[in-house]
Nucleic acid binder design. Sequence first.
DNA 1: ACAAGTATCTCGGTTATTCAAGTATCTCGA
DNA 2: TCGAGATACTTGAATAACCGAGATACTTGT
Lengths: 149, 149
Amino acid sequence: MSTREELAAELQERMVRFIADVILFNHAVSAKVGLGGSDSQFMTLLQSYGPLTPRQLSEHTGLTSGTVTGVIDRLEGIGLITREPDPNDRRKVLVTPSSEAIQEKLAPLYAEQGRRMHEVLAGRSDADLRVISDFFRDSIANQQPLDIA
Amino acid sequence: MSTREELAAELQERMVRFIADVILFNHAVSAKVGLGGSDSQFMTLLQSYGPLTPRQLSEHTGLTSGTVTGVIDRLEGIGLITREPDPNDRRKVLVTPSSEAIQEKLAPLYAEQGRRMHEVLAGRSDADLRVISDFFRDSIANQQPLDIA
DNA sequence: ACAAGTATCTCGGTTATTCAAGTATCTCGA
DNA sequence: TCGAGATACTTGAATAACCGAGATACTTGT
């Protein structure tokens, strides 16, 4: 095997491991707050993309509309999100993350992870960050074209 | 905001998006084979780390021991893995992925993804691959010390 | 105004997961 | 060596999550 191929294999192996760890970490954090895996996935999506409709959440998680309704019910009950009708289309519902509740309940649990990631990035040059960022960009483009927002 | 901070923020945003897409993709693939999310997570772990005990699978997924037994039952029923007693400790069970079944049932579904990832990597220099690979290495080290193998 | 399309919710049935208890094996000190 | 305690997995009942199909409400285009 050439060095190049070994390098690529190493990268992929680490990537798989990284993803597994992220999933595990999310799982652990969710459990600590009393949420399920889908719940935290929703919160992640909402914090990344802002208000989303149930339909969009369904598309981004692969869950059916009925399930999405249930998850939103849970999250709304806890106060992590709010449900508002879309003024432009009254069929739609806008699910908005409530930043206060997130800051209070969720943020502390991710603080340490954020600090460590910051540390990892701090040790790298601007050029390297660009390389890594572009890698993610291209990898995303590879998946389905799930146009959001 | 400085350019450096914008760069880091962009990177993290893309990373989050990338992970969400990976989870979604896994979900879709699992559904196509008639497996649940946990099942494919198990297969990923087993393909990465080789034979594992139920206890290790439990630690790496955050699922309880009872759930792990159930998942293993399912996967064994389909023929994707085999259960063998550990000769050194008869309390233990070794869960081994059966490569033939994986090649036949699972590999085709991931083939396209693999091809695309290969494409993404192909367009990059050895130095860039090293930068990306090391980023994953350091990010993994950041998570819990989940010594496996 | 009407038909077709879209967005969400409801609800019954299925499946997945947890929790607690049970069995088997191993470890280690008296 | 023998027994107590720890470890590894499984089982079964209860809980929770999820899917799927149909119902409701709104929008769009003709």
